[in-house]
Simulated scan of single mutants.
Amino acid sequence: MIDSGPGIPDEATIVATLRAAGCVFAEEEAALLRQAAASPGDLADLVARRVHGIPLEHLLGWVEFHGHRVTVGPGVFVPRRRTAFLVDRVVEYSMARPGDRRTVLDLCCGSGALGLAATRALRAAGVAVHLIAADIDPAAVACARRNLEPLGGRVFRGDLFTPLPGEPIGRVDLLLANTPYVPTGMITRMPPEARDHEPRGALDGGSDGLDVLRRVATEARRWLAVDGRLFVETSESQSDTAAAIIERSGLAPSIAHSPQDGTIVVEGTRVAL
Rank of each mutant, 00 (worst) to 15 (best):
G205E: 09
L210H: 06
V182C: 11
E193H: 07
D240R: 15
P253D: 07
I245W: 01
G209Q: 13
A243P: 01
E236N: 14
D208G: 02
E193I: 08
L213D: 11
A252D: 14
P253A: 02
R200D: 02
L203K: 08
P191Y: 08
P253Y: 08
E247K: 13
M190W: 08
R248W: 01
S258P: 10
D208L: 03
P253H: 10
R248C: 06
T184Y: 04
R189K: 10
G250W: 10
V182G: 11
A225H: 09
D240K: 14
H197K: 01
S237Q: 15
L251E: 11
T184H: 09
D240N: 13
W223D: 05
V226F: 10
L251H: 12
S239D: 14
G209N: 12
S254I: 04
E198S: 03
D240G: 05
A243L: 01
P183M: 10
V232C: 15
R221P: 00
L203I: 13
H197D: 00
I246S: 01
V232H: 04
R195Y: 05
A194G: 10
R229Q: 15
T184N: 07
T218H: 13
V182Q: 14
L251D: 09
T188I: 08
H257G: 04
D204Q: 06
S207D: 13
R221H: 04
V212E: 02
H257N: 14
L230E: 08
S207V: 12
F231L: 15
R222I: 00
A242Q: 02
S235P: 02
T188N: 03
E236R: 15
H257P: 01
Q238D: 13
R214M: 01
S249I: 04
L251W: 14
I246F: 09
T218D: 13
E247P: 00
P191H: 05
S207R: 12
R222T: 11
D240M: 11
V216D: 09
L230N: 10
G250S: 11
I245V: 14
E219I: 00
S237G: 11
P191A: 10
L203W: 08
E198F: 05
R195C: 02
A202Y: 07
R221M: 00
D204M: 05
R229D: 10
R215W: 10
R248N: 11
L251G: 09
G250L: 10
S249W: 04
T218C: 02
P199Y: 07
G205Y: 09
D196K: 08
G185I: 02
G206I: 05
A194E: 03
E198L: 06
R214I: 00
Q238Y: 12
D211R: 12
R195W: 08
G250A: 07
S237A: 15
P253R: 04
L224Q: 06
S237L: 14
R200S: 00
V182D: 11
H257D: 12
D204F: 08
L203V: 04
V212S: 03
F231P: 06
G205P: 02
T188W: 01
V226S: 08
T184S: 15
E219G: 02
R195L: 02
D208R: 09
